[in-house]
Simulated scan of single mutants.
Amino acid sequence: MMLTVTNDEKTTSSSLTPAPEQPCRCFSMFELSSATDGFDEKWCIGQGGCGKVYKGKISDGPTNTYAIKRLHFMSDQGEPDFWVDVEMLSRLRHCNLVSLIGYCNEGKDMALVYEYMPNGTLYDHFHKKGTVLNWSQRLKICIGAARGLHYLHTGTGTQHGVIHRDVKSSNILLDQNYAAKIADFGLAKIGPTNQTHTYVSTAVKGTFGYMDPDYFYTGRLTRKSDVYAFGVVLLEVMCGRPALDKSLDEGLAIWAQDRIKQGNLTQIIDSRLRDHISKSSLKEFTRTAV
């Protein structure tokens, strides 16, 4: 029998109070505008539904360079996600989670300031830059992301864990050493960790291609929803294809799993990896992904 835990879309601070808070600085929009030359497009390093992300220089911080996410003033999703991000990241500490440095809240002018990740997103390396990542690099990235996700689910130091709800390759960022850090907690939800089968009833949100079918059809969110999405990321890393590949008749998850069941594993792996992976490593990786 499943225990239903209802939860509204706004995370309450009491959910995670036992965890220590990180110092979170309040910036003025003037400071952030100065750091980005008036939010000049030449410093834009990313864009999402809620706004753009800029590379910025702030001289009196612990480092000089930061990622500044400015929310679009017309975004209905932006403000709730903004406060969830602040709420989550000010209370979570792990080497495989992106650190929140501070925020700006001046009416319609809202922004989040994160540590800067010089190697961008995992998605960009595979699907935009065409970076050739060897098998060891890919394994290191996947293991780092898995550790961050495991911490969210079980290791936050409280009886409540965090369900990310939007695990995907574009939310896995890479530092100067290609170490992986999970980012973007705007859709995250709090859920009990002491009962494996407990779920949170919530509006269905996430990204198609990574979304757990059970969650999509029932609205019952569990840690397994994140695990499903992470499995899609693993297939993406192995195959070198996006989760929604226009050249396929179905999503990557279905396409890859069907061919794995048929024993066509060597036909679906990234062509740049062939003859560069041991059979035992590939077998174990595939088993984990499936």
Rank of each mutant, 00 (worst) to 15 (best):
G102V: 05
G144M: 05
V200R: 00
D249S: 06
G191M: 15
C24N: 04
G161Y: 14
E115W: 11
M238I: 13
M2D: 12
E87N: 14
D124F: 04
A179W: 13
R223E: 14
N105C: 14
Y199G: 06
Y210Q: 09
S281R: 14
I190M: 09
H125D: 00
P62T: 12
Q176L: 14
G206N: 03
T222R: 00
R91I: 08
P213M: 00
C24H: 09
Q195S: 13
S59P: 05
F285H: 05
D249V: 13
D166H: 08
S13Q: 09
W43H: 10
Q262T: 12
F82R: 11
A145M: 07
L149C: 07
G49H: 07
K279D: 15
R272S: 15
I182F: 05
E284I: 11
P118L: 01
L244E: 07
E250Q: 15
L133M: 15
K108C: 01
L234W: 07
R147G: 13
G191Q: 02
I269L: 09
N64Q: 14
T121F: 02
C142L: 12
K168I: 08
R93P: 05
E250I: 15
D166Q: 01
K128G: 00
I101E: 10
L244P: 03
C104V: 11
G144R: 00
D212I: 11
T12K: 12
D76G: 04
C142Y: 05
